[in-house]
């Protein structure tokens, strides 16, 4: 008994040590990869062939998840040897990590306001350009059992409604739409990004959420969308920019080009985004 109990911590320590080593080596591997890759990318830009390689990191608004993943896969197919890594989240949180020094090449946000946080800090290279726009929609449970037909219906206190936090573009847009309709809505929760708001309805924990049309479309049959006229007053412009400290400028520029190309626009409008 005594030996067993005294052996356990040793085993545990060994296990923790091994795990830590694995993690460390994995990190250093990927660092090496991106480091050498980005150098190669810059070299590639300089050479006449214009061959792209290396890894790029794209910070993008949560609402862009599905369409950007598709574009990322396409980019990797078009440019073998490249790898696109995404970080999706609330635009405000992403902006905060970029100004805080997170290594990223491209930032695509869901509102000019959150983009301003980055440009004001001098972290953007060049002027951000609007590449799509997005309109709000109400997401209800499948079949709309509560008969939600308008934004006003959401103010019913018996209904559990989630909104995005006002710091996030979808939250400020929702507030703008509510103001346009002179409505006051008390949600059960202010979510940190549009996908967590949507997922509260997907999980049936909330009865409705105010999200983007694109999110309702991406969720398939798991939620039902309800259009409301006030959303016309709260259409979000999505700006995209190359970042000042981009480790892999050449590939990052090519990715921004792809997003703004006819091909990229086709993917985005197919996902429900509006043309700029």
């Amino acid at each position: 008994m005594r030996t067993r109990s005294s052996n356990r911590p040793v085993l545990l320590a060994a296990g923790v040590g091994a795990a830590a080593l694995l993690v460390l080596s994995a990190c250093s591997d990927s660092d090496d990869g991106s480091g050498s890759g980005s150098d190669a990318g810059k070299d590639g830009a300089g050479s006449a062939s214009g061959e792209l390689s290396g890894e790029i990191t794209v910070f993008a608004a949560a609402s862009l998840t599905e369409s950007f993943e598709e574009l990322g896969a396409q980019f990797e197919r078009d440019h073998p040897g490249t790898k696109v890594t995404f970080s999706f989240g609330g635009s405000d949180a992403l902006a905060a990590s970029i100004t805080g020094g997170a290594p990223a090449d491209v930032f695509a946000s869901a509102s000019p306001t959150t983009m301003d946080l980055v440009t004001d800090a001098g972290a953007a290279a060049g002027t951000p350009e609007t590449f799509v726009r997005n309109r709000l929609e109400i997401a209800t449970l499948p079949g709309n059992p509560d008969g939600v037909a308008s934004l006003k219906d959401l103010t019913d206190p018996g209904l559990k409604v989630v909104l995005c936090d006002e710091a996030v573009p979808c939250g400020s847009a929702a507030q703008k739409a509510l103001d346009a309709g002179s409505l006051k809505l008390t949600p059960v929760s202010y979510e940190e990004d549009v996908k967590s708001a949507l997922n509260k309805v997907v999980l049936k924990e909330a009865d409705a959420a105010v999200v983007y049309k694109t999110d309702v479309q991406a969720a398939g049959g798991k939620v039902e969308g309800v259009d409301f006229p006030e959303s016309a007053d709260a259409i979000n412009d999505y700006p995209i920019t190359l970042l000042e400290d981009a480790p892999n400028t050449a590939a990052a520029e090519a990715f921004v080009e792809l997003v703004r190309s006819a091909e990229g626009q086709k993917v985005l409008t197919g996902a429900g985004f509006l043309k700029p």
């Binding site: 609330g90 405000d92 949180a93 902006a95 905060a96 989630v162 936090d165 710091a167 949600p187 059960v188 929760s189 202010y190 979510e191 940190e192 509260k200």
Partner: peptide, 24 residues
């Protein structure tokens, strides 16, 4: 934040407000 969500005065505890304040 996963189970109880985030609403000031009801479910927004200190760590949640620290996290959200960091962004704004």
């Amino acid at each position: 934040i996963t189970f109880a969500g985030n609403f000031p005065g009801r479910t927004q505890t200190m760590p949640l407000s620290v996290y959200l304040a960091l962004q704004s």
